[in-house]
Design a protein around this nucleic acid. Structure first.
Lengths: 188, 188
DNA sequence: CCATACTGAGCGAACGTTCAGTCACCGACA
DNA sequence: TGTCGGTGACTGAACGTTCGCTCAGTATGG
C-alpha cells in the first residue's frame, strides 16, 4: 500500500487538516475520519500522536497562536514608542492571518466554542508573548480604564473576525482600522 | 402519559432550548435529542415544526435578531442626534444581551459558523431594522471610510463578544466602551 | 530483529431523521 | 345536546449513518 514516508511531519499535517476543516465546515464537519482523509493518513494515525480529538484541537490552537506570535515578534521593534508598536502588531497580525485565512477562521470558531476556557488555560500555561506585549507598562498607561479583556476584544478580536469573515482591506483601509482600534483602546 | 398542553408554544420552547444548548455546549453538544429533552418534548416533535435541524437553527437566529432589534427600537428616539442614538443603541444592546447571555453566546457562535452565510441571507430577506439604523444618512456621514462590515464588527461585534465571554461591565465601564467604539467608527 | 509508525476494519454510542400510532380538539349532523 | 369522523400536534422506538476511538496486524528504519 502507501509507503511510509518518514520525511513528512504527520502530526503537523494532521493539525493543519483539522485547522482547515474547522475553518471551512466548523467543528461540526471536522470529524476525525475527515481530518485523517484530508491529512492523507489512516483513521488511526491521529491517535498515535494525540490521545483524543480534544487534545488535537488544543495542540492545533497552541500552534496557531504560537505561529501568530512568532510572526509578530519577528517584525516588532521593542524600543519603538507604544503607538508605533501597536501599528506594527496590527499590520503583522492582519498579514499573517490574511496569508492563510483558515488561521483566522479557526481561531474565531475556537474562541467562541466550549473549548475556549480550557484553551485559554493552556495558552496561559505555555505563555503568550503577544498577550505580554499588550500588557507592557508604556502601553498600559495609555489604555482606557476597562477590563483587559475588553481591550483585547476591541483590538484583536475585531481584527481576527474581519479576516475570518473574508473582508478584504487595502493598505489604506488597514491603516484606518489600526487608527480606529488605537483610538478605541486609548484615552483621548 | 403526559397530557398534551395546548397552551404552551412548543416551537418557541424548542427554539429556546436550541439557543440555550448551543450557548452552553456549542453546536457540537446541541443534538436534536438533547434539544427535545431540554424543551420537554419528544424527539420527533421538533420535526413537526421544522423540516430539519438547519431550519430550526435559522428560525432561532432570526428570532434572536428580531428580539434584539425590538429591544433597541423600543427605546430609540429617531430624532436624537447620531451620537446620542448610537449610545442609546449600545446601552440597549448590552442590557438586552446581558439579561440573557445565552442570546449573545448563540449569536457569537452562529456568526462564525458555516451557518453564517445562509443566516445573513435570510436576515436580509426578512429585513433587519438594526442594520438599517446603522446605515442612516446622518450617521453614515460621520463614519470612517472602510467597508460597512468593518464598522459593524468594531461596534456591535465587539459588544456581542464581550457579553458572550461573560465580561461584566459597570455602568461607567459600559459608557467607556460606548465612547471607545464611537471613537473607533467615526472620523476624528 | 526489535521498536516504532502506521493501517484500516471494526467497535459501541450517538447522530439526524422517520413514521406508525395516540391523543385532544372541532365542526357537522342528528 | 350528544356523538361521530376528520385533523393535526405529539410521541418514542427504530432506522441507517456517522461519530470518536481501538487494536491486531503490517511495514520500515536502526
Amino acid at each position: 500500500m502507501t509507503p511510509i514516508a518518514t520525511d513528512v511531519d504527520r502530526p503537523a499535517a494532521i493539525r493543519r487538516a483539522l485547522r482547515d476543516l474547522v475553518a471551512e465546515r466548523g467543528f461540526h464537519g471536522a470529524s476525525m475520519s475527515a481530518v485523517a482523509k484530508e491529512a492523507g493518513v489512516a483513521a488511526g494515525t491521529a491517535y498515535v500522536h494525540y490521545d483524543s480529538k480534544e487534545e488535537l484541537v488544543h495542540a492545533t490552537y497552541l500552534e496557531v497562536k504560537a505561529d501568530l506570535a512568532a510572526a509578530v515578534l519577528d517584525v516588532l521593534d521593542p524600543d519603538a514608542p507604544p503607538e508605533a508598536r501597536y501599528r506594527t502588531i496590527v499590520r503583522a497580525v492582519y498579514r499573517h492571518l490574511r496569508e492563510e485565512p483558515a488561521r483566522a477562521r479557526f481561531l474565531d470558531q475556537l474562541e467562541v466554542s466550549p473549548y475556549r476556557a480550557e484553551a485559554k488555560r493552556r495558552l496561559a500555561e505555555q505563555g503568550d508573548p503577544l498577550g505580554e506585549q499588550a500588557a507592557a507598562a508604556d502601553v498600559a498607561a495609555r489604555l482606557v480604564d476597562v477590563p483587559m479583556e475588553v481591550i483585547w476584544v476591541l483590538a484583536f478580536g475585531s481584527l481576527v473576525r474581519l479576516v475570518a469573515a473574508g473582508v478584504e482591506l487595502s493598505d489604506t483601509e488597514l491603516e484606518r482600522v489600526a487608527d480606529a482600534t488605537w483610538r478605541a483602546i486609548t484615552t483621548p
